[in-house]
């Protein structure tokens, strides 16, 4: 009952009916958490665990729900955009307690389905600037600008050519924020820096991402930051083939190519899922966007491509930024 009271306190005033419905949902959700939560997670890619970066990070989060919280989780893979809403609806109709979307490309379906099924909690594990007009929604994501800042500090200090490259899949808002952070922070640690940006045009094309990356490297970039979904493999291949250095995205890329991966900037996506589980268990389900900032990021150990002195310098700058001692102005660049 305590949980129910706490949740109702957080309700926006939308009338007694809505409040009662949400109250029932939350009570049911909280009650189910004590037993077993039934959740569905929707991926746009196939075999997410094999896609290092964003999707593997999400999958590790899913694993956390299963292993640490005993949730019964169903995973839907390779769901095409036109089928997202239908898939989510089917889970809601099948009495799933929670439906999780894993990409900002899923926002339209999230907006469409959530209001129709008030008894199910719809969660967005990706960047969004607004919530659906519904009380059964939550969003967890990283501050991509801050994430870009950390990447920019790493690349700006590690480069020897004063040129770094940021390669993306499609210029969505999260990437624009990330690349803006890279531009601004790398300038602070290296005033001579030139940031080359390019997009492969999709999230799945390894060959395209590879060739786009090769081109940036031919322009002089010696540190490459890649965020192109499945295509990031192509970026890594281009970097490895040209003996430059790669900054891993979201998860640890070291095992893929130890000599090529300078470091990885971990996004700690599983912590979003941990937060979700805690919120469900505690009943803190007020609609909100939970933003994970720089303090949630971490660097994996550097490889041997940079000196110990440079590595220390990078660590110091990142620590300063995380502790709020380094001020990086927020400037939004457009890369479209």
């Amino acid at each position: 009952m305590n949980m129910l009271t706490e949740m109702n306190l957080g309700l926006p005033t939308k009338g007694a009916v809505t409040g009662a419905v949400l109250g029932v949902l939350m009570f049911a959700t909280a009650g189910a958490a004590l037993a077993e939560m039934k959740a569905a997670v929707i991926f746009g890619v196939a075999n997410p665990v094999a896609v290092n970066g964003w999707d593997r990070g999400q999958f590790e989060g899913v694993q956390k729900l299963i292993d640490d919280h005993g949730w019964d989780v169903t995973v839907a893979e390779a769901v095409p955009f036109p089928g997202l809403a239908n898939t989510a609806e089917n889970y809601a109709k099948s009495d799933y307690d929670v439906v999780i979307f894993t990409s900002s490309g899923h926002i339209k379906a999230w907006n469409e389905v959530a209001p129709k099924y008030p008894d199910t909690l719809f969660v967005m594990m990706s960047t969004t600037s607004s919530l659906p007009e519904s009380d059964n929604v939550l969003a967890y994501t990283s501050d991509f600008y801050a994430y870009g800042v950390v990447n920019g500090l790493v690349a700006g200090l590690a480069t020897e050519t004063d040129k770094i490259a940021a390669i993306g899949g499609v210029p969505v808002q999260a990437l624009e924020d990330m690349f803006s952070g890279i531009v601004e922070s790398s300038k602070i640690v290296n005033p001579d820096i030139e940031v080359l940006t390019a997009f492969s045009g999709d999230w799945t094309g390894i060959p395209r991402a590879r060739e786009v990356s090769v081109l940036q490297i031919q322009q002089g970039a010696d540190i490459v930051i890649g965020n192109a979904g499945v295509g990031t493999r192509g970026i890594l291949d281009a970097v490895q083939s040209t003996e430059t250095q790669f900054v891993g995205y979201a998860t640890d890329w070291t095992e893929d190519a130890p000599e090529t991966v300078l470091t990885s900037v971990l996004m700690n996506i599983p912590s979003w899922y941990e937060q979700l589980a805690q919120d469900v268990e505690s009943g803190a389900l007020t609609p909100r966007i939970e933003l994970f900032g720089a303090e949630s990021f971490a660097l994996t150990p550097f490889n041997d491509s940079i000196s110990a002195e440079t590595a220390q310098k990078i660590t110091d700058y990142v620590d300063q930024y995380v502790n709020g001692e380094l001020d990086v102005p927020k400037v939004n660049h457009s890369f479209k």
Partner: peptide, 16 residues
């Protein structure tokens, strides 16, 4: 030639 000779990895529907 696409996978081994060029991008050195495989993904679903890589031939696109």
């Amino acid at each position: 030639a696409l996978t081994v000779g060029w991008v050195r990895s495989f993904s679903d529907d890589i031939t696109a």
